[in-house]
Design a protein around this nucleic acid. Structure first.
Length: 874
RNA sequence: GGAGGUAUGGCUCAGCUGGUUAGAGCGCUCGCUUCACAUGCGAGAGGUCGCUGGUUCGAAUCCAGCUACCUCCACCA
């Protein structure tokens, strides 16, 4: 930044250079320091082959703000970055690429296919990292981790084996969610339920004894191919006589029992439920109770298998049509009702999920959930905002066992070996050479891999070296704050908490800072299919990284969704430009080379310093309670309103004046406040603040390593603040009055000020000339003689007159003052009503009463002044 | 069926633990080539803070009920 530089801030030119400077200097590194307190954030690892979207940008911006703030607060700040292998998502991408070559993963085979995925990972894995750097993310990149790197893999292996040994991982046949498109099992969390229009088909199943038929209602008629029973409620009078009998399953001609089970709701449908234990979790349970046969009729791709008779080979939805058509032909469809159906879909590909019985690995959740609930309920880990703790607890209390095996190739392969001879399963930390039970060498490893979230769950400690007892782990763990969107509380946050509790005996972080989603300007989710996504990099390109960051963290409150408006980026860009120009102004006027406060301070100096001091206090408080948006707003307001619009303007007469001492002093205060501003703003707008910092006189190396401003009792000047505001009020009142009459600034006016606070206005002469467009100024404590030809302006502390006879309309003038007077009286009466209320005086805190009194006095003074003016007008 | 969220000027939203003349950005109106910035400066218009009760000296802010919209969770075929 040089004095001759452009009037407009050019982020593109600055950001890359500054980022490289930081990175090279090692400022991002989290270094263990016994003299410092640690502050650790682990970054939610984005998908390794993903692209940065607005959600990531917001997430990263919030984390960067926190980590920069804490770093400046003197903590040993560590932000651990990394990427996630994202099992299904990545595998799908590579398979799609293969399809372009006319190949499937089976053509390549497991080994070759995995090579291709690693190639892919190596090719695109850095892309998102580079994008995060553009945002200014001050991560310790040397510690970047990948969920499938050696260390994380070791942690995964250790966790799997130890949970297995504790009997908290088991393999079993259960109804799981199956995605026929991804051809893998999914956990409950990976299923998204959507209301879809469907039908409720009423089907007739003939009774075996020929006495008629029983009517069942179903939303998935094709599953009837696997029916092995019909259930009714034991209390249902209508069907009591049928219990124990059998009926004939149409199309399949299978004799199936009619059983009684509480599960059946007598109110719904016909009260009779067809039982398909292989394709419905409830039917499965009922089947267990009544020893019903389990017949799975769908294969892994959702087609009817060999047990589905003539329908074999049909896709489940084709089969549905065929089954209905055939049943109708047989006269066995009693009626078809329209019915909204809650259909589970795959969160990755959107395909309808099929409940299917399958042998999978599960984590037993009950025992783990207990501690995970406790740490949140007892406040060891707090959610911000707090309401998310309820959501978390509620989920945790009702959680089912976690299906962790996936029929994929990309991921951590399950460390379980099956013995072909004795059937024993060997689960081991080291790859075994033989069955641990019978010693047979005839063992084969489980083909499946683990759920991606299984490794993400260990992220806070696996990235710090666990299971080894590393110094990093000792120092930086438990981490401090986890920042993420509410959409992955169940997927990730919950699982990190119970994993941390189980394996490290500590909750992995004391605070979970939850943010909302970034939506488009219409409030819709940004998505690829809608094509409504806004590319953060595009915004950075157009408005700068600082502007984007500021946009993302202001104007919304924690946990709530925000709409993204490009125009807001523009506004933030303008703000950045404002700071740039203010700094340019300071630099242009600078003849000093050291940042220090002068010995002698003018009222306006004390005013700005006192204001600054309050802002510092509030901003620190806001930051410490995660009110980042509020903090940012306060800094921004202070810079624009107090510093630029008022203080800088105030210094102009001094900077251009004859008094050397005053000129230098003004420079000193300008520079001091600017320096503090840069520090305050740095976590939010790191690039521009560092760039300016480098250009102004400073001690120390880089702004990123400076100490964050802290409140100082010695810089509190309430009296001067108040005095100065009296002057500001007068200036505003004059401006307002002139604007009303359309007087251009070029027309100066003689200003006669009648006040008993002459000293304040005396000191403010220069400001009145500059900011209230005054020509000559007379200050007195008595009214001028010829008021008729003057425009009057009244505040509580002064009456001001401007001889502008041509603009004065006595009638209008009287009217205006009358109006102002009414307003003031109304205000005053309001105050007095309060102040004469005994309960108010008795119960309200002294500070509030004091405040009211002050305001009443002010209103009274205004009334007096206005009344007098009115009297003078005759 | 549960649980939660949101309702504040034309638009989008702040407003933390009750006491502000209820704020901001954008938009709108008027004026300004004021020597840092027209990505700017000054002045303004515009709000019964969803509705109804309650608690309180005092409520946009706390409580209850209602209405509207949104979200999450839940095995009703």
């Amino acid at each position: 930044m040089a004095k001759e530089l452009s009037k407009v801030y050019e982020p593109k030119e600055v950001e890359k250079r500054i980022y490289e400077m930081w990175e090279k200097s090692g400022a991002f590194r989290g270094i263990r320091d016994p003299k410092k307190k640690p502050f650790t954030i682990v970054m939610p690892p984005p998908n390794v082959t993903g692209q940065l979207h607005m959600g990531h940008a917001m997430d990263a911006a919030l984390q960067d703000i926190l980590i920069r703030y804490k770093r400046m607060k003197g903590f040993a700040a560590l932000w651990v970055p990394g990427t996630d292998h994202a099992g299904i998502a990545t595998q799908i991408k590579v398979e799609e690429a293969l399809r372009g070559e006319g190949l499937t993963r089976y053509d390549l085979g497991r080994e070759k296919f995995l090579e291709r995925v690693w190639d892919w990972k190596n090719k695109y894995g850095d892309r998102i990292v580079e994008q995060q750097k553009k945002l200014g993310a001050s991560c310790d990149w040397e510690r970047a981790r990948f969920t499938m790197d050696e260390g994380c893999s070791m942690a995964v292996r250790e966790v799997f084996v130890s949970l297995y040994e504790k009997d908290l991982i088991y393999k079993g046949s259960r109804i799981i969610n199956w995605c026929p498109h991804c051809t893998t099992a999914l956990s409950d969390a990976e299923v998204e339920y959507k209301d879809k229009p469907g039908n409720l088909w009423h089907l007739r199943y003939p009774l075996t004894d020929g006495s008629g038929y029983i009517v069942v209602a179903t939303t998935r008629p094709e599953t009837m191919l696997g029916d092995t029973g019909v259930a009714v409620n034991p209390n249902d009078e209508r069907y009591r006589n049928l219990v124990g009998k059998t009926c004939i399953l149409p199309l399949m001609n299978r004799e199936i029992p009619i059983v009684a089970d509480e599960y059946c709701d007598m109110e719904f449908g016909t009260g009779c439920v067809k039982m398909t234990p292989a394709h419905d979790p409830n039917d499965f349970e009922v089947g267990l109770r009544h020893n019903l046969e389990i017949i799975r009729v769908l294969d892994d791709s959702g087609k009817v298998n060999e047990l589905g008779g003539k329908y074999q080979g049909l896709d489940r939805y084709e089969a549905r049509k065929a089954v209905i058509a055939d049943l109708e032909a047989l006269g066995l469809v009693e009626k078809i009702e329209e019915h909204q159906h809650n259909v589970g879909t795959c969160y990755r590909c959107g395909t309808d999920v099929e409940p299917i019985i399958s042998a999978q690995w599960f984590v037993k959740m009950q025992p783990l959930a207990k501690e995970a609930i406790r740490v949140v309920e007892e406040g060891e880990t707090k959610f911000v905002p707090d309401r998310f703790s309820k959501i978390y607890t509620n989920w945790m209390e009702n959680v089912h066992d976690w299906c962790i095996s996936r029929q994929l190739w990309w991921g951590h392969q399950i460390p379980a070996w099956y013995c072909a001879d004795c059937g024993h399963i060997t689960v081991s930390r080291e790859d075994p050479a033989e069955c641990e039970k019978c010693g047979s060498k005839n063992i084969t490893r489980d083909e499946d891999v683990l759920d991606t979230w299984f490794s993400s769950a260990l992220w806070p400690f696996s990235t710090l070296g666990w299971p080894d007892k590393t110094e990093d782990l000792e120092y930086f763990y438990p981490t401090d704050v986890l920042v993420t969107g509410y959409d992955i509380i169940f997927f990730w946050v919950a699982r990190m908490i119970f994993s941390g509790c189980e394996h490290t005996k500590r909750s992995p972080f004391h605070t979970v800072f939850i943010h909302g989603l970034v939506r488009d300007e219409k409030g819709r989710k940004m998505s690829k299919s809608l094509g409504n996504g806004i590319d953060p990099l595009d915004m950075i390109d157009r408005y700068g990284s600082d502007a984007l960051r500021f946009n993302l963290v202001t104007g919304n409150s924690p946990g709530n969704d925000m709409r993204f408006y490009t125009e807001r980026c523009e506004a933030m860009r303008n703000f950045a430009n404002k700071i740039w120009n203010a700094s340019r102004f300071v630099l242009m006027n600078l003849t000093i080379d050291k940042c220090e406060l002068p010995d002698r301070l003018e009222t306006e100096d004390k005013w700005i310093l006192s204001k600054l001091n309050s802002v510092i206090k509030e901003v620190n408080e806001n930051m410490d309670s995660f009110e980042l948006g509020v903090a940012a707003q306060k800094v921004s307001d202070f810079i624009w309103d107090s510093y630029c619009d008022w203080y800088i303007e105030m210094t102009k007469p001094r900077l251009n004046g004859e008094d050397d001492e005053s000129r230098i002093n003004a420079q000193k205060v300008l520079l001091y406040v600017l320096t503090e501003i840069l520090k305050l703003l740095h976590p939010f707008m790191p690039f521009i603040t560092e760039e300016i910092w480098q250009a102004i006189p400073h001690e120390g190396d880089m702004l990123i390593l400076e100490r964050y401003p802290e409140y100082s009792e010695s810089l509190n000047y309430p009296k001067d603040e108040h005095d100065f505001e009296i002057l500001m009020d007068a200036i505003k009142a004059v401006r307002s009055r002139r604007a009303e009459m359309n007087v251009p600034p070029s027309r100066k006016a003689h200003l006669i000020i009648v006040t008993d606070k002459g000293d304040i206005f005396e000191k403010g002469r220069a400001f009145l000339i500059k900011l209230a467009y005054a020509g000559d100024i007379d200050i007195s404590d008595t009214d001028p003689a010829d008021i008729e030809g003057m425009v009057s302006v009244v505040t509580g502390d002064a009456k001001m007159f401007m001889p502008m006879a041509d603009l004065v309309d006595l009638g209008k003038e009287r009217e205006r003052i009358e109006k102002e007077l009414q307003k003031a009286i109304k205000e005053y009466e309001g105050q007095m009503a309060k102040l004469s209320n005994e309960s108010f005086l008795a119960k309200a805190p002294a500070k509030v009463i004091e405040n009211e009194k002050e305001r009443a006095a002010k209103a009274k003074a205004l009334i007096d002044n206005l009344t007098e003016s009115l009297k003078k007008l005759g």
